[in-house]
Design a protein around this nucleic acid. Sequence first.
DNA 1: CTCCCCACGTCAGTTTCCCGTCAGTGCCCA
DNA 2: TGGGCACTGACGGGAAACTGACGTGGGGAG
Lengths: 219, 219
Amino acid sequence: MRVLLIEDEPVLGQAVQEQVAADGHAVDWVARLDEADAALRAVDYGLVLLDLHLPDGRGLDLLKTLRRGGDQRPVIILTARDQISDRIEGLNAGADDYLVKPFDLNELSARVMAVSRRYAGNPNPLISSGKLKIDKAARRVWRGEEAIDLTKREWAILDLLTRRATAVISKEQMEEALYDFGSEIESNTVEVHISRLRKKLGRDAIHTVRGVGYRLGSD
Amino acid sequence: MRVLLIEDEPVLGQAVQEQVAADGHAVDWVARLDEADAALRAVDYGLVLLDLHLPDGRGLDLLKTLRRGGDQRPVIILTARDQISDRIEGLNAGADDYLVKPFDLNELSARVMAVSRRYAGNPNPLISSGKLKIDKAARRVWRGEEAIDLTKREWAILDLLTRRATAVISKEQMEEALYDFGSEIESNTVEVHISRLRKKLGRDAIHTVRGVGYRLGSD
DNA sequence: CTCCCCACGTCAGTTTCCCGTCAGTGCCCA
DNA sequence: TGGGCACTGACGGGAAACTGACGTGGGGAG
């Protein structure tokens, strides 16, 4: 699979390029949006890794333009921790996934691997929990045979819960994952989302650990 | 990753424990070789940090015994500057790395990180005691095949009991661990929690040492 | 540009259940 | 045998969590 990396920080760019290349993919690395534009027109990439803060424009605009033009290619956003609002906007704009800097290169490998599997026509590995089957790469969930539609927030929470399979995730962690750094939430938003998720996924899909957080699975 | 720290100096031990814990690892800290022995038998550690000068024996002997038994777990030696011959002997005995006191805590983090990268991908280490299996990272307990739900307080107590595997923990220590400094308790709360824990985990999961405290295990 | 839809944050009323307390009983050792 | 120390069932207060309802704002369709 051929990957386009759009990143202007030399150190991070090099690290990512090496990592993805080590996984057996061809990586084209550009640092500016106009180069990215040209590359996207010339080559049929299987995946785009997009940094949102570039010297000559906002990465988000590139993504929006792509999607408006009907381009469905997978895009994974690389974003800094303090730019979570961008991340939300990115998901709205049609990104497939995001990684928060500084990210673990192995985590990157895993995401790239998921995309490449889809690219090769192979199904993605399914995470299952009780009656649920979760395809993280394709952002899809099934409850038994029935496919479930999740909203962005709902997916973000489920994504957190599946990241470390059996771990307990606190409400604070969920807030951090969902909201802009510093924008405090003073209501029970997370609880409400959990409630909505349970309505869709089944009452016992998510287990409450009172005073601590939530965990995937019922037992 | 779960780390065993074998170190008898309180100040250094505490500093190391905090540093490694801050890096996201679970740290068990023992000061004597017999405790280390017991801990190593009970828990599948991802890394051992070993001080060579301990009150009840030579750390090197522990390392040699481990390696002779075919144990391949990573061991990093902590040694003083004037004991370089020990260091050489340590490497001969099968240590993976060494740090010379006084060492920079960031240097420690780097070494630990290197080990944990190798370790990544493995399932969480399980602590076992009798029929119990305890996954501290996931905050879960099994009694045989059956998963057990623990409340916050119950988990806090079990956590204490497993922290120093064979040690007897007094009720006072448990109170201190459970409650904010200053908020005094004047009832038999700890006993009640122990009782509730035993109901869930099995009568002989926790042993009473009358007049002293509690200890994990039945014998 | 306008209208509609729906995702989401907020709130309030209700429910759940954790935990500290107490009291009665049992057990261990002098 | 008696005096503590420990165990455990019961209970009530209150914090934490759940959920139905509502308003709003942003995105998509026309």
